[in-house]
Computed example of a mutant assay.
Amino acid sequence: MSAATMTPAAARAASAAGSRPGKRRTGVVWSVVAWVVGVLFVLPALWMLLTSFHSEQAAATNPPSLAAPLTLQGYREFFGAGGGLSPWPPLLNSLTASVMSTLLVLALAIPAAYALSIKPVKKWSDVMFFFLSTKMLPAVAGLLPIYLIAENIHMLDNIWLLVILYTSMNLPIAVWMMRSFLAEVPVEMLEAASIDGAGLPTVLTRIVAPVAMPGIAATALISFIFSWNELLFARVLTGVVAGTSPVFLTGFVTSQGLFLAKVCAAAVCISLPVLIAGFAAQDKLVQGLSLGAVK
């Protein structure tokens, strides 16, 4: 059949058949690009993990040796073998500050986001801009005033000071995230609950929270990660009692030199809680972060 005598349907089918190899090649190219980018992102973490199983002599070689013998000496020294400091108090401090601040952030962000999305207040856009403007100030600019306030109220080297700080630091981001998530809650469900006489606490706990659970999980995970990784305020405002795991990690860099294998072992151990939390909540995180992206 010549091109002049082909029906429109046959012409479309022939065109689609001819374009399939090109689309397939394009898909393969983008798949390769995605894999390369993914490997580049994961490679430093894998290198850190491999270095943590080397001795200090093997880790310090230049160029580094991939075939160096493996050992657990770095992990033994991290956990206090040979008379070193125990990592458990800093890890517990980080866990306390991260978990408590995350719970406080959720307790404050969900009602605030409810007021800004489902029951919008007047000039809600100005309120959202105010929340965003609080993140425009560099953290180091507020360090000295916060230090002086903490000194005057006798809260230096206190874990609850970090809880308050992390809550205030993560609350604006949490409100922004939760507002976009709660905006997707069907209004019909809220109207039905209102007709049935449900109060605000019942609406938030039994209707809004289950529907927006992916968004709540994503917000909680991000708040937890930000709190766990924070170093500047923890380094300046804490000492012996309330020091967190990032502060403990910087203690391995001394005037005697950089103990690379031990630092890598410590970094792997300190990163594990965040990695475990992210892996456990990855489905909720992806679902929450993509909520409302596709209509």
Rank of each mutant, 00 (worst) to 15 (best):
Ala9Phe: 12
Arg12Gln: 09
Ser15Asn: 13
Lys23Arg: 15
Arg25Asp: 00
Val29Gln: 14
Val32Ala: 03
Gly38Leu: 12
Leu40Tyr: 05
Phe41Leu: 15
Ala45Asp: 00
Leu46Gly: 12
Leu49Gly: 11
Ser52Lys: 01
His54Ser: 08
Ala58Ile: 07
Pro69Lys: 03
Gly74Trp: 07
Gly80Lys: 00
Ser86Val: 04
Ser101Thr: 03
Leu104Gly: 02
Ile110Thr: 13
Ala112Tyr: 02
Ala112Ile: 08
Ala115Asp: 07
Lys123His: 14
Asp126Pro: 08
Met128Pro: 00
Phe130Met: 14
Leu137Ile: 11
Val140Phe: 11
Ile149Glu: 01
Leu156Tyr: 06
Leu162Thr: 01
Met177Arg: 06
Ser180Met: 10
Phe181Tyr: 14
Ala183Asp: 11
Met189Ala: 04
Ala193Cys: 05
Thr205Tyr: 13
Pro210Asp: 06
Ala212Trp: 06
Met213Ile: 11
Ser223Asn: 03
Ile225Cys: 05
Ile225His: 02
Glu230Leu: 03
Phe233Ser: 07
Phe248Pro: 01
Gly257Leu: 05
Ala261Thr: 04
Cys264Leu: 02
Ala267Trp: 07
Ser271His: 05
Val274Pro: 09
Ala277Ser: 06
Gln282Arg: 10
Lys284Glu: 14
Leu291Met: 15
Leu291Glu: 05
Gly292Asp: 01
Ala293Met: 10
